[in-house]
Design a protein around this nucleic acid. Structure first.
Lengths: 228, 228
DNA sequence: CGAGGAGTTGATTCCAATCAATTTCGGTGG
DNA sequence: CCACCGAAATTGATTGGAATCAACTCCTCG
């Protein structure tokens, strides 16, 4: 359990980074290094939360089905992110589903251990408060994006998210993303066809380069200029 | 200060409802019963937060400007709601503006008093955590609504929000809402013209009744059926 | 090697934004 | 009190962007 003390400070891992040995023990970590294969589901909308998930490798999509079954991906969780804390906090059913988009490793913390620590440790709870406040800010930005932006802008935004979440392969300079075109559309809030067409446009304009299903971002600046 | 101990338990007033006399004193309430007139601004996007606002009468809109200056209302705060806590938590600039849509009365709590209480009182901080988790859930629902719903559905949703926030006049059975058509559109995330046309459609279909700028919801069930 | 899922492309439709013109309303000063 | 002004509301015409529908190709995986 050393590793999550020495992680990227920007990530949610820092949630646990200042805990004492006893406090970490009190978390009663479960299923350490549990592996979820690509496509496997962590939990589903409507289920009751039993544990908090802490990702330390891979990517998990948090998604929800809207009108006429169209999927919307609300969040991508990668190393350092925690999943399922919201439902634990208000004790309600999951309002979304979570599943691995690539092989993912994580461990679990029982809900009550998490709640106990929140009550006992005010520094910890301040960190969670900050995290929630940050997530809320992002969500509200997303509301406006969805309401006002064009397909082109939303797809550009989605690609930028992918590059921040998946990073870039050092050799090929391509996104390490295994998301399908449909999933990119589900992030952007557009149809699969619109996502494909826009990605193809970006390709023609040399902003990105397509190599099979790999996407290579050739000009981040141009892509960032799209989103305003 | 009695009044906010005996308030609607569903509201955020209950945030403060279990505090001791000393704890309430520690909040160093400022500008008790401060009045903001219709249209007055509480704070603006980009400013730094100095205090938390607790509304106990009236309505405040939290809004943000998106692309090409189009306004989006992200939240309506009414009696019992608190405003500006998010920016206090993460110590950043306001990410949205707030202004009174009708005469509003509120008091303020200095940022540091709020933060101190959060650290000192774990019950209080649990309540804030729950509130944030609830707000986040609403925001994510809104993301999907904006991405997937039609103008008609979004306007219906906005009208239902109004009826829950403003309540209904006992005599006229009309919404006690002083929002303009533009503002209803800004909540729904549609243009003013689309909002007007949809409201007019609902009128023709006897779902609502229009009396000047007053709106009377004649058939809540039908309106609720619109949003699915 | 077959099958099905993923990706792609083209044609068509239609919803909602935009543009434009009028009417109505609320407030305010003469 | 009323006329007037600007803001808000309304209505119509037009446009355009993106969804939908449909057909086809290309992988990839059992």
């Amino acid at each position: 359990m050393q590793e999550f003390k020495t992680h990227n400070p920007k990530s949610h891992f820092c949630l646990f980074s200042e805990l004492s040995r006893e406090q970490i023990a009190s978390l009663r970590l479960q299923e350490i290094d549990k592996v979820y294969k690509k496509g496997e589901s962590l939990f589903n909308e409507g289920g009751y939360p039993k544990a908090l998930y802490v990702v330390y490798k891979g990517i998990v999509k948090i998604h929800k089905y809207g009108v006429n079954g169209k999927e919307q991906i609300t969040r991508l969780a990668s190393a350092g992110d925690i999943i399922g804390y919201r439902s634990i906090l208000n004790g309600e059913q999951y309002s979304a589903s979570a599943s691995a988009v690539e092989e993912t490793r994580l461990f679990k913390i029982p809900s009550d251990a998490f709640l106990d620590l929140l009550k006992a440790n005010s520094d910890f709870s301040m960190k969670v408060l900050k995290m929630l406040a940050g997530d809320l800010r992002k969500a509200e930005k997303q509301v406006i994006d969805m309401a006002q932006k064009s397909v082109r802008e939303k797809v550009a935004e989605a690609l930028l998210l992918l590059s921040s979440k998946f990073g870039v392969n050092e050799d090929t300079a391509a996104l390490n993303s295994k998301l399908t075109r449909k999933e990119i559309g589900d992030i952007a809030g557009v149809t699969t066809e619109s996502a494909i067409r826009t990605i193809s446009d970006f390709n023609k304009e040399q902003i990105i380069e397509i190599d099979g299903k790999k996407i290579l971002i050739k000009d981040v600046t141009k892509l960032e200029r799209e989103v305003f």
